[in-house]
Write a protein that binds this DNA or RNA. Structure first.
Length: 303
DNA sequence: AGACTGACCTGAACGC
DNA sequence: TGCGTTCAGGTCAGTC
């Protein structure tokens, strides 16, 4: 499940169910799900087997599991260091991480199964569309600070990161030469925001997504980023957003935030603020939802 | 360098 | 019923 709140729901579930457990076996059922692990599925499995999981972390929509330091002792853990391996997961559009008791029948789109050396539940990566995937990478220093798996090093911190700097994010947003919604979706500007929460944040900030970032005031930039942080925390508190059974926590349950969406998916429904019908417009092979009254389009620039 | 367009997949929902 | 079209919450390589 895609955006930050949903990924955080999964991270918490993993933290509850797989920490301090040791991997016994890995079954890769679909090559595409480990395509980002360039050395291949056997190497992927070999790098997990025998390792004990120490932490479940997240930045933006990326999720990863760190292992217990192989050289350290339980009494004196040295903590994660650059170069240590971590299992990186991205859920793509339809990925799920499920914690399942082994007798439970396999899901139709089960791609990777991770079994532990205890009698506890296994971890199943289920992904209908296979846009997501798992891979192992060394931890590296991220551009914006922090220790993250190498492929994540280029993305910005997300608004729920304690070290997130709103001022830096506003500056990054205004530095772009594009439209504000595109910039919100750019994970190198601020991470974790996808199509739903971009639309919700823009509605809260009363900005139209096609406004040029270059013309945004600092206050407007700040407002839309604050709105994004706010809407994502509210969504997280409700277990995330879900339209269907594709977006679920590790137990297979859906969140309830879809009931709180103000614009996303609300075409032709009355805006909760002013009553004007919400409109839907094509956007990058997808859709954007706006209230035409609360979020007036910017004046088109003269040629 | 930075912005933008496809391409990557499967399945559900809809119209004819 | 069945077939075709459209749509879906993400990212990245390639192009301009």
């Amino acid at each position: 499940m895609p955006e930050l709140p949903e990924v955080e729901v999964v991270r918490r579930g993993l933290a509850d169910h797989v920490l301090d457990r040791t991997v016994a076996r890995v079954d890769v059922g679909h090559l595409r799900s480990v395509r980002r692990h360039l050395p291949g599925p056997d190497d992927f499995a070999a790098r997990l087997i025998g390792r004990r999981i120490h932490a479940a972390r997240r930045r933006g929509k990326y999720l990863w599991l760190e292992f217990t330091d192989p050289g350290g002792s339980p009494d004196s853990p040295r903590g994660p260091a650059a170069g240590d391996d971590a299992v990186l997961a991205h859920l793509g559009m339809s990925g799920q991480m499920l914690v399942a008791d082994p007798p439970r029948p396999d899901e139709a789109h089960l791609r990777v199964r991770i079994t532990f050396d205890d009698d506890g539940p296994e971890l199943r990566f289920v992904d209908q569309r296979t846009f997501g995937g798992l891979s192992v990478h060394p931890l590296a220093d991220a551009a914006g600070g922090g220790l993250v798996p190498e492929p994540v090093a280029h993305i910005a911190r997300d608004p729920m990161d304690p070290a997130f700097s709103p001022d830096d994010a506003v500056a990054a947003l205004r530095r772009r030469r594009t439209e504000v919604k595109r910039a919100l979706l750019d994970q190198t500007v601020v991470s974790g925001i996808g199509n739903i929460y971009a639309d919700e944040a823009l509605w809260r900030a009363r900005l139209h997504g096609t406004r040029p970032t270059a013309a945004l005031t600092r206050a407007q930039g700040r407002a839309v980023l604050d709105a994004a942080a706010e809407v994502m925390s509210e969504a997280l508190a409700q277990g995330g957003t879900s339209f269907d059974a594709l977006y679920v926590n590790v137990n297979g349950d859906s969140g309830y935030f879809d009931r709180s969406l103000n614009v996303y998916g609300q075409a032709d429904r009355a805006c909760r603020r002013c009553g004007t019908p919400i409109r839907r417009d094509p956007f990058m092979n997808r859709s954007s939802y706006t209230c035409p009254r609360c979020q007036p389009r910017p004046r088109t620039r003269r040629a």
